[in-house]
Write a protein that binds this DNA or RNA. Structure first.
Lengths: 190, 190
DNA sequence: CAGGAATGCTAGCAATGCTAGAGTAGAGTC
DNA sequence: GACTCTACTCTAGCATTGCTAGCATTCCTG
């Protein structure tokens, strides 16, 4: 029994190692640089080991994304907790979201842009994703009025997501980012 | 002289052929199915011919994107022209944008999601892109108030783009799309 | 009807995701 | 304490990718 437990523990540790290595590699050089060979070399195992843990590269990316949800949720929560009044809370949470996307673009892509095999808009979605979404919801709740809070959160989130992806793809000039963000918030405020 | 002219014409035709084939292949099976070999087979030339026209696959995708800007601009213009009052114009143009993204997802990705080597937020950007952006601008102008029209257009566009990409990536439930779109428009209306 | 230049093809390279099968530990049994 | 057997990891390889070098061929020019 104890031997099996130790093996399971070692396996879990190695899985974490793989996920961390994949994330670090992606954040350092982008997802296109995360190949099975380079990842295997980094964790000092052969490629087939990766496949004993994950179905394929997509599954590895999904695991990285799940980690990212927790990080994002924590940062949004911190931003909301530090804010004094509701209006500032929305601005601060939005700024935290934007900062996260800017600071960790590869991680953000795995979470929100790349096609990964994860449940999103269902109860089975990762708990951390619900947590992050909940932070956005609470931040915008004071501005909901008669609108459905869930729908409003989704729509505001779309605005944030669109701003970040279009800017990062070179479709929007960087220098106006702050003004666009302010404009988005003001239009979503009653 | 005439011979050179004919050759140039034939070359241009073949280039169009390549672009069209790439777009059709992408729209039928997605961009990951557009490989140099399949594309070459489709246009009934060998692979190196593609490289005599384009620097690589990215450049082919960029050419497809430029074609797409013209299509989108035309559809937005038609929607705006058919609308009776300003409020309806914004709704119709937004719906046309969403319909375009839904109907031609691969084309939309090349235009707005994939990283392609094209100038966007500069005067050198494709004229058709400016045209499409201009349609959005005119549609939202009545709602601008004291806000800068360019920034407002960019921000509203980000909202549309975010809605479509998140929904298509499975991050937002499809069934609420219309309500989210309505909500976005209402928040951007004065 | 030759000479030459443009043009398209065959063949191949390095790298990709993924897998089959061999080899090697270490755990359980007498 | 020796032995079998299971579980695990690695080497080697497949099919496919984007891209390129160098050879044929074709067609225009004089």
């Amino acid at each position: 029994m104890s031997i099996q437990a130790r093996r399971q523990r070692e396996r879990a540790e190695r899985e974490r190692l793989i996920i961390t290595a994949a994330r670090e590699l992606a954040e350092a050089e982008g997802w296109e640089a995360v190949t099975t060979r380079r990842l295997a070399e980094r964790v000092e195992y052969s490629q087939p080991v990766l496949y004993s843990h994950f179905k394929g590269m997509d599954a590895i990316m999904a695991a990285v994304a799940v980690e990212g949800f927790a990080d994002l949720a924590a940062e949004l929560r911190a931003a909301r907790a530090a804010a004094t009044d509701p209006r500032k809370a929305l601005a601060d949470v939005s700024a935290a979201y934007a900062a996260f996307a800017e600071r960790r673009p590869a991680l953000y892509d795995a979470m929100f842009s790349r096609t990964v095999d994860l449940p999103f808009a269902t109860p089975e979605a990762p708990a951390a994703l619900h947590a992050a979404f909940g932070e956005l919801s609470e931040a915008i709740r004071p501005q909901a009025g008669d609108d459905d809070l869930g729908l409003l959160t989704e729509t505001f989130w779309s605005g944030l997501h669109g701003l970040m992806t279009l800017m990062r793809g070179g479709r929007l000039p960087r220098e106006d980012h702050d003004r666009r963000l302010t404009l988005l918030i003001s239009r979503f405020s009653r």
